[in-house]
Nucleic acid binder design. Structure first.
Lengths: 152, 152
DNA sequence: TACTAAATGAAAAAGATTTTCAATTAGCAC
DNA sequence: GTGCTAATTGAAAATCTTTTTCATTTAGTA
């Protein structure tokens, strides 16, 4: 399940934001991709449809969408920021290659119990969590000469 | 348990790198902090001890330490990159209040099994993870009127 | 002590992101 | 539909962060 254009526009209006053609185009670009896209990549896609659109508008729109919790902002290797449509009923976690930045998504995690315990111990009302594993993917592991892990 | 300066220097030499005063200072700065530090923050701390040291050297040293798996490179909100000494046997997690920013640390999490499974399924060599819960602390919970989440 | 490859710092370059500001436009009242 | 107003846009400039280049210095070793 993914947010539809309608639902997103509704959420924008609710938040007091206007629906502009630029925003529509950006939203569609994000909806229609299942990958993480950087602002520059989104700009590239959006320009195909609307060549005049500026990178600044991409940044501004993404910021709004993220603040409304409609998209998920990610930070991974290199430079650095990327966005993905949120899929409301799923969790969305990442396994990131620290060398090449490849991101693998996974949705299952068994943090329910931990969350309950923390919540009880701290009196927090927990609304979400971020879980990221970092490591080396198979390809990058191959490239490294040494695997000296002084932990071993 | 934390890497000691000695062990780190050993690992550097093993990797064919020289031990310079600059590198020592940087390593100590990272060892002596339990927080995630950005390169700029590390530069700030290191300068107190060695004012001449350049930011470039920080970047270069951090890159080496990360490639040797001695520190853990993280990417999180904003700008963006930060580093933390790897503490092989400990984890370091946060519970953050989204309103006032209070951070509560906790170290236990039962992600070992998930990590093993992910590792197996993806052929990643997982070197660390970041786990953050976000919510409202007791105080802020009192203050808020609305909790509009279109997911609900 | 001298040698050599590696490391350093300064400056410049390259990117990413944010700010500023004048011009345009969406949404609303009429 | 028309006009109004605040929000939005795009261009340019400003800020940051990170990387590259290059001449100089230095750690490690013979």
């Amino acid at each position: 399940m993914v947010y539809t254009e309608k639902r997103i526009e509704h959420a924008l209006r609710q938040g007091g934001y206007k629906i502009t053609p630029q925003r529509r185009t950006i939203i569609n670009a994000v909806i229609n991709s299942h990958e993480h896209l950087t602002p520059a990549e989104i700009h590239g896609r959006v320009r195909r449809e609307n060549p005049g659109i500026g990178l600044v508008t991409i940044y501004r729109t993404l910021e709004i969408l993220a603040s409304l919790n409609l998209i998920c902002e990610m930070h991974a290797g290199g430079n650095c920021r990327s966005y993905l449509m949120r899929r409301p009923l799923e969790h969305h976690h990442h396994l990131i290659c620290s060398d090449c930045g490849t991101v693998i998504d996974f949705t299952d995690c068994n943090l329910g119990e931990l969350e309950r315990r923390l919540s009880k111990e701290t009196s927090f009302k927990i609304s979400g969590h971020l879980l990221e594993f970092v490591g080396q993917c198979r390809k990058c592991r191959g490239k490294t000469l040494v695997g000296q892990d002084i932990n071993a």
